[in-house]
Design a protein around this nucleic acid. Sequence first.
DNA 1: GCGCACATGTAAATCGTTACATGATTCG
DNA 2: CGAATCATGTAACGATTTACATGTGCGC
Lengths: 188, 188
Amino acid sequence: MSLDHILLGILRKPANGYAIKQAFDEVFNHFWAAKLSQIYRTLKRLEEQGALTSRNTPSEKGPDKRIYSITAKGRRQLRDWLAQGPVVGEERFAYLGQVFFLSELKDLRQSLEFMSSLEASFRRQHEVLRAVEAHWRSSDPGYPDALNAEDFHAQLTLQMGLAKTAALLKWAEQSVSRIRKRLEENKL
Amino acid sequence: MSLDHILLGILRKPANGYAIKQAFDEVFNHFWAAKLSQIYRTLKRLEEQGALTSRNTPSEKGPDKRIYSITAKGRRQLRDWLAQGPVVGEERFAYLGQVFFLSELKDLRQSLEFMSSLEASFRRQHEVLRAVEAHWRSSDPGYPDALNAEDFHAQLTLQMGLAKTAALLKWAEQSVSRIRKRLEENKL
DNA sequence: GCGCACATGTAAATCGTTACATGATTCG
DNA sequence: CGAATCATGTAACGATTTACATGTGCGC
């Protein structure tokens, strides 16, 4: 149900589906993914439920834009979600399941390749977030503790991303070394 | 689609639905959650697809058990999933979306409560994993680098859980302090 | 003219949650 | 005798993915 609430949060500032998808890819992607088609259908449903309203406006490029904004009812839903406390215990990491069963391949070199590939992907994620932080820091003298409330909370999520990717990167690096060590010992 | 593959991995050792749910709650819960009803339906579908077979056996308590095991076809599916490389970019953390939009409540004390609650839940998770590790370490002299391949890979996932929860716990602690500081400054 | 970015959607299928339904055994 | 644990499932609904379908404007 969280996509609903994330869309409501985004739509405190009016936007169209396509622009929301871009916000997702930039900001929300590292903790929630969504496809364009799902966004469109969810917006439609939220409007039917009275949590959003929309109006058509012409676009410079391509067809008209349908601009959605949150209603009073939608805002109540958003606040209820926030006030109910953290939603935990529903996280999913498919790749951890893969690591758990990797021994099924019975080939440590494939395990090594797998973990190296994970390491590379955590490194990319971490670098993206570091660049975001560097840019923010250099363009905003209030960073990180003299921000307004909205930016302060956004900064907390950025910090979490940095902390998490740093920890995972380190874990992946150590795992790669440990697998290398096992490979060498098995060769003797 | 990963539930399919996790079930296939578990069923390299035959088990019934109820026992699988228990394995989930103990081992897989920190990276993949599943309800009993979903497990039963997925087992049924996987059997229809020929990835599993089942046989009925009487139980000491309650009704007969339906014991599933993996077929050659299922094993190929499992290996294909492992060989395709890490599935990344589909992680979901509802609570991070909440943190991002928490400013909507316009009440730092509620933000503080929220983050404290998150902190407590990360601390619990971390302690559970530490206990698992402590138990394993003290009961198995091969821990952590002289384990067989299967246990070694399981241990890698445990390490990841420890690394992740430690990082998140630290992040939550720091966030709580930063919010406290803001609260005090606003009071002046 | 081709491909890319912009822009919106529908259809079908699968995945996942919630609620309902049933019944035996064990422990206090 | 009541609650917890063991044990399996269905029905209805809601969430999500994948594939399909359409069309404009801009730059090379």
